[in-house]
């Protein structure tokens, strides 16, 4: 190789060496910027000029000079960047930030505590194969009472103070009419959780609300027994309240289940020693449950000799109050931002 290309390669090497030396010697951001312009500037950069001259060379020389020029350019670029980086922290124009100052935060939303409870209940039963089923809040007396084996004119109706809409219609007093709806829509096996809003004629006070949510569950198939009820609800209680929580079932009464039971867990406040929250008993009632009454199966055309089932219902508002220490149910309806802010990270 000889002639212009060798000359140019030598000039390139000199240029590169010069540039590297000057970059190392440079002090301050302005000096570095000036060097960048001198060597790499688009218009008058000395290296740029060499690259611009490449098309004039014969192909072999163009390749050799081009490679060398690009290598030189990359090397100078790297040096310049390193020098700039090294400068940055010490530079007077970029003071070290005070990282104890608050971060630039965004608003974050929180789920309603009742939603947290409902979702957790449904998720735990989801582990046992339960799906979610919903239905209307305005119901017929038939679905809300008659088909659920409430005898007409019976004192048990007084347990449910009802809002009536007229013409045999009402606001459902519990989610149990969904048992009727799901069994009329599907044949067993049925395993569903049924959350939703319910209504009773109770004015707002610290522990009552005219509208509140419930979660119901229903399991119907051949061979379902009271043992399955106890097993499923005990599993739920241990998942929801903790693996070591003590659980007991005691007889109760609901027109649409028999045998009926209330499930109680060891008081979450006093852990069984007795306190005002558990009326000194050491136990807290969590939910009502029972084996589906044969009359309910009859009402929906399911053969009670072939199929059996269990159901439970619970109040997520009360659960939320217990779990999160909410002293007054009305707080759950007020939408006070200071209350909901506390659930931002709790979901």
């Amino acid at each position: 190789m000889s002639g212009p290309s060798a000359e140019q390669l030598a000039a390139l090497a000199a240029l590169r060496a010069e540039a590297e030396a000057r970059v190392r010697a440079a002090r301050g951001r302005d000096a570095l910027q000036q060097l960048r312009t001198d060597y790499l500037g688009r218009k008058a950069g000395r290296l740029t000029a060499i690259l611009k001259g490449l098309p004039a060379l014969d192909p072999d020389a163009r390749r050799a000079v081009g490679e060398a020029a690009n290598a030189a350019k990359a090397a100078i670029e790297t040096l310049l960047e390193a020098a700039e980086r090294a400068l940055a922290p010490a530079g007077s124009e970029a003071p070290r930030p005070d990282l104890t100052m608050p971060a630039r935060r965004q608003w974050r939303g929180a789920l309603h505590p009742v939603t947290l409870v409902v979702d957790e209940v449904c998720a735990i039963f989801g582990e046992l194969g339960f799906t979610r089923y919903v239905g209307p809040e305005a119901e017929t007396e038939r679905n809300n009472f008659t088909a659920l084996n409430f005898p007409p004119e019976h004192p048990s109706l007084e347990m449910h103070d009802t809002f009536y809409l007229g013409e045999g219609m009402l606001l459902r007093t519990h989610t149990s009419p969904l048992q009727i709806r799901v069994m009329e829509a599907y044949r067993p096996p049925i395993r569903v959780t049924m959350p939703g809003m319910c209504y009773r004629r109770d004015p707002f006070d610290p522990s009552h609300a005219p509208a509140f949510s419930q979660v119901e569950a229903l399991a119907v198939d051949e061979g379902i027994t009271f043992v399955d009820l106890k097993a499923s609800l005990t599993y739920f209680a241990r998942r929801f309240f903790g693996p070591s929580v003590r659980v007991r079932f005691r007889p109760s009464f609901f027109p649409f289940t028999e045998p009926s039971a209330d499930m109680e867990v060891e008081c979450l406040i006093c852990h069984g020693t007795g306190c005002p929250a558990c009326k000194g008993s050491g136990w807290m009632e969590i939910l009502g449950a029972g084996m589906v009454d044969p009359n309910v199966f009859e009402a929906v055309g399911v053969d009670p000799e072939r199929y059996t089932g269990w159901a439970f219902g619970m109040g997520p508002h009360r659960m939320a109050m217990l779990r999160y220490g909410v002293p007054d149910i009305r707080v759950l309806f007020e939408g006070d931002m200071r209350f909901h802010d506390q659930f931002v990270d709790g979901g």
């Binding site: 799906t131 799901v182 829509a185 067993p188 049925i190 395993r191 379902i224 079932f249």
Partner: peptide, 20 residues
């Protein structure tokens, strides 16, 4: 006595109702 009944989980069939 309800407390004298076992609470062991027994096999069950998956239900036919889809998620809403």
């Amino acid at each position: 006595g309800y407390d004298r009944f076992p609470d062991d989980m027994r096999p069950y069939r998956i239900g036919v109702v889809p998620d809403a």
